[in-house]
Design a binder for these strands. Structure first.
Lengths: 139, 139
DNA sequence: CCTCTGTGTATACATTATATACACAGTATA
DNA sequence: TATACTGTGTATATAATGTATACACAGAGG
């Protein structure tokens, strides 16, 4: 399983772990009831303290993404496809809300923002194409 | 001049001051060469330490929004309308980029995101209307 | 019994934000 | 020249947060 964190990322490391595992769950790369790496194992893999990983797992459990069993491990929770889609939409909605508020505060028009949005989408598409993600061949 | 900061805002107080003054400048509510409140005055007004305000002013100066003169005060820099517009677009662009990246990472389609965007824009319009901003009368 | 697992607790360091305080230098005005 | 403002430099301190190491305990499974 591919989890990456970076000390140079301004986000706290435990939050990076949370984000990454959430993403793997909602995009189906982690299945229901699949066991997660143990706290100690992942802390060794990511070269970070077990307390950091433990904190991430506690957060994920609190938010309902995983469940843990003392002495056994931590597992992906059973979440319906609908719940997963709802969560995804909510995340993007919140991110868009921040962008829209910023645009409003700075007196930009809807047209201007839509154009910026189109630019960012295209740029993201290009970056993803060139990195081989998304199932399309490289140029 | 209306500057508000809040200790309950997760953003550091000095950043809130920076953001607020930047917004007043780029939306024309602060004019070129207009004097800003002094560090001591604003710290009294906002009930915060002068060091906090000073840090905000130093940040604003570093980014070219204001200039300061020891013994005299701090003033709004002379920025062309084009520069101000560029900065505004850049801010919103960055915010949109975060939203688009999030959408990509979560495998949402452009159509889904556009629809969410429309919802957020409409919601922001409604909130602004009901709060009397934007020059329109309250219902 | 051993080897894993999660859990509780203790202690410590680093970074960042914010605070109070004082003194100094610059500017403008009377 | 004195006063009242301004910004600037420096010192000291507290609080919050994130991260780290370490140890011990309890649960689960083979």
């Amino acid at each position: 399983m591919l989890i990456h964190i970076s000390a140079s990322n301004p986000k706290p490391m435990y939050e990076q772990v949370v984000d990454e595992i959430q993403r793997l769950i909602v995009t189906g790369q982690l299945q229901q009831d699949e066991m997660l790496p143990s706290i100690r194992e992942l802390s060794t893999d990511l070269r970070t303290s077990a307390i950091t990983i433990r904190r991430a797992y506690q957060e994920l459990e609190r938010e309902g993404f995983i469940y843990t069993r003392a002495g056994k491990g931590s597992f992906v929770a059973r979440l319906s496809a609908e719940k997963l889609m709802q969560w995804k939409m909510e995340q993007v909605k919140q991110a868009l809300w921040e962008a829209v508020l910023q645009a409003k505060r700075l007196d930009l028009t809807e047209e201007q923002v839509r154009e910026l949005f189109a630019d960012m989408w295209l740029k993201a598409d290009q970056i993803i194409k060139s990195s081989g993600q998304g199932g399309e061949s490289n140029d």
